[in-house]
Design a binder for these strands. Structure first.
Length: 423
RNA sequence: GGAGAGAUGGGUGAGAGGCUGAAACCACCGGUUUGCUAAACCGACGUAGGUAGUAAUAUCUACCGCGGGUUCGAAUCCCGCUCUCUCCGCCA
C-alpha cells in the first residue's frame, strides 16, 4: 500500500510512474487525494466537537466534586447536542476512511524509475545471459517423458490422492528434491541468511501484510472453517514475522531464508505449456527475504541477484535475467528481476526465480518500521527472491543433462543426492 | 473438548468511574561527576493522525489485547471475540 504522505507530496511523480503499470491509476490517485482532503476536514470537525465535549465532562466532574449538583446538571444538558453531533461526525469520518482505504489498496506499487516501459512479457529487457545451451539432438525427451522413463514422479498417483498438479515424487525423484532444498538452504546460510521454518497456513492479517489480500484471494487455498490460507510462497509468513515491529537501525538488514512447500490455486492459468513440472498447485521453494534500510535496499537487491546467479551457475544451467517492464510486474513490486533457465528439450525459457524490491509498499501494510537517526519511526524496505523454486529447475536439469547413459547430476548436487546419475 | 486465571508503555508491574497517557522500578538515551570503568545524581523517554510553523516546537484527537455498549465522563462497569497461563481429558 502506498503511503498517503507520498501521494500527497509527490502526486505528479506517483501518477507518472504508476502509468508504467497502467494509465488508469492516475485517476485513482486524484480520487484518493480528494477523499483524503475531505476526510481531514471531517476529522477536524469531529475532533473540535470531541475537544469541547471533553472539556465539559471535566467541568462536570469538578462541579460534582464541589457539590454543585444543579450546575452539573446544566452542563450535562449542553453535552447532549455535542454527543449527537459527535455521532454523525464519526460516521462520516469512518465512511470516508473506508472509501479512502478501498481506493488506496487498489493502487499497485510505484515502479522504480529504471523500470522499462511496456505492457507484456515481450517487452521485458534481457539484461544478462550466461551458460551454454546444450545441443541435445533428435531424440531428446521433454522432462515429463524423462520422469516416466526413470520413474521419478507420478502425476497420476498425485491426481488420485489429491488432484491434478499435486505430484508424488518417488525414489531418486524424491531424493533430488530433498537434495536441492538442502543445497539451496546451505548456500543461503553461507551467504549470511538466517534460516527460519515458518507455518504453512497464515491468517488474513498476514495475507494482507504482504499484499495477497484483499485482491488476490482467489489464488490461495482457503480453509474457511478456521479462516486460514495455505501460503502461496514463504514470503508471506517470513515477511509477516516483522509485522507490527519497530526495529533498531543497527539490526538492518535482516536476512532470512526458508524452505516451504507453496500452494497455488492458479485459477484460470491452466492452458498451453503447463505439462509436467511447468505449473503445479503444490511445489517446493527456498525463499530469501530481506528487511532493509531504505538507503541500502537497491544494493541489497543486487546482492540477491548475485546470489541467485551463483546458484544457477553451480547447477550449470543456462539462464538469463529479465528486468521486468511496468506492465509485467507484480502488484507490490517496485523493481523485479526474473530469472529464467533454458529448458533445452522444450526449447523454452522457464521462470525459476523472481527477485524484487518492494520498497516500503509491504512495510506500510505490515507497519514494519525502524527508529532512524532522528529518533523517528521510518518504514523499512522489504525484498525477496526465490532461491530457488524447484520444479522448473528439475525440469531444466533433467532435459539439459540427459545422455544415452542417463541423467547427469551437476557436481554441486552430488554430495547432497548421494548419486551422480539417474539411470 | 471441560474448568479456572489473566492480557496495562521496551521489560516488570500499580491503578478498580473524573485528580491517569497512565505510579514505581528496570532498561535505553542525554547530562553532571570521574584517570578509565563502575557507581551516584539530574533530565528526557510510547504509537498514530490532524492543525499552525521553514524548523526546533506548540496544540488538538485517538489508543491500557480486539470490537461493541452503559455514562456528562471508562484502563476501570457490561456484552462478544482473540490470545496466554494453570488443571483435567485426548493425542503425534
Amino acid at each position: 500500500m502506498l503511503t498517503l504522505q507520498y501521494l500527497r507530496e509527490q502526486s505528479q511523480e506517483a501518477k507518472d510512474r504508476l502509468s508504467k503499470k497502467n494509465p488508469k491509476h492516475a485517476e485513482t490517485v486524484d480520487a484518493v487525494l480528494s477523499i483524503d482532503e475531505e476526510s481531514r476536514k471531517a476529522k477536524g470537525e469531529m475532533e473540535r466537537n470531541q475537544s469541547e465535549a471533553n472539556l465539559l465532562a471535566k467541568k462536570i466532574g469538578e462541579l460534582m466534586k464541589s457539590g454543585d449538583k444543579t450546575g452539573a446538571e446544566e452542563l450535562k444538558a449542553q453535552t447532549a447536542i455535542l454527543k449527537e453531533n459527535g455521532k454523525s461526525f464519526e460516521e462520516k469520518s469512518k465512511q470516508l476512511d473506508q472509501e479512502l482505504f478501498d481506493l488506496l489498496v487498489t493502487l499497485p506499487n510505484v515502479p522504480h524509475e529504471s523500470v522499462p516501459v511496456g505492457q507484456t512479457a515481450e517487452e521485458n529487457i534481457n539484461v544478462y545471459q550466461n551458460g551454454t545451451i546444450p545441443e541435445l539432438g533428435e531424440n531428446a525427451l521433454p522432462h515429463w517423458e524423462l520422469i516416466k522413463k526413470y520413474d521419478l514422479i507420478d502425476f497420476e498417483l498425485g491426481a488420485k490422492i489429491t488432484g491434478a498438479g499435486f505430484p508424488v515424487y518417488k525414489g531418486k525423484g524424491a531424493r533430488i528434491q530433498r537434495a536441492m532444498i538442502n543445497f539451496f538452504l546451505d548456500q543461503a546460510i553461507a551467504a549470511g541468511y538466517q534460516e527460519v521454518m515458518p507455518p504453512l497456513l497464515v491468517n488474513a492479517d498476514s495475507g494482507f501484510g504482504t499484499g495477497q489480500l484483499p485482491d488476490k484471494e482467489g489464488q490461495m487455498y482457503h480453509s474457511t472453517v478456521d479462516d486460514l490460507y495455505l501460503i502461496p510462497t514463504a514470503e508471506v509468513p517470513i515477511t509477516n514475522i516483522y509485522r507490527d515491529v519497530i526495529l533498531k537501525e543497527e539490526e538492518l538488514p535482516i536476512k532470512n531464508v526458508g524452505y516451504t512447500p507453496c500452494f497455488r490455486r492458479e485459477a484460470g492459468a491452466w492452458g498451453a505449456h503447463v505439462r509436467g513440472l511447468n505449473r503445479l498447485h503444490q511445489f517446493d521453494k527456498v525463499e530469501i527475504v530481506q528487511i532493509a534500510h531504505p538507503d541500502q535496499s537497491y544494493a541489497l537487491l543486487d546482492e540477491m541477484v548475485i546470489h541467485v546467479k551463483g546458484l544457477l551457475e553451480k547447477l550449470e544451467l543456462p539462464y538469463r535475467i529479465l528486468h521486468l517492464c511496468g506492465g509485467d510486474m507484480s502488484f507490490s513490486s517496485a523493481l523485479t528481476y526474473d530469472f529464467e533457465t533454458y529448458s533445452a528439450a522444450q526449447g523454452r525459457w522457464l521462470e525459476v526465480s523472481s527477485t524484487s524490491n518492494f520498497e516500503n509498499f509491504q512495510a506500510n501494510r505490515l507497519k514494519c518500521r525502524f527508529k532512524n537517526k532522528e529518533g523517528k519511526n521510518q518504514l523499512v524496505h522489504t525484498l525477496n527472491g526465490s532461491a530457488l523454486a524447484l520444479p522448473r529447475i528439475l525440469a531444466t536439469l533433467l532435459e539439459n543433462n540427459q545422455t544415452p547413459e542417463g541423467i547427469r547430476i551437476p557436481a554441486a548436487l552430488v554430495p547432497y543426492c548421494g548419486f551422480d546419475i539417474i539411470n
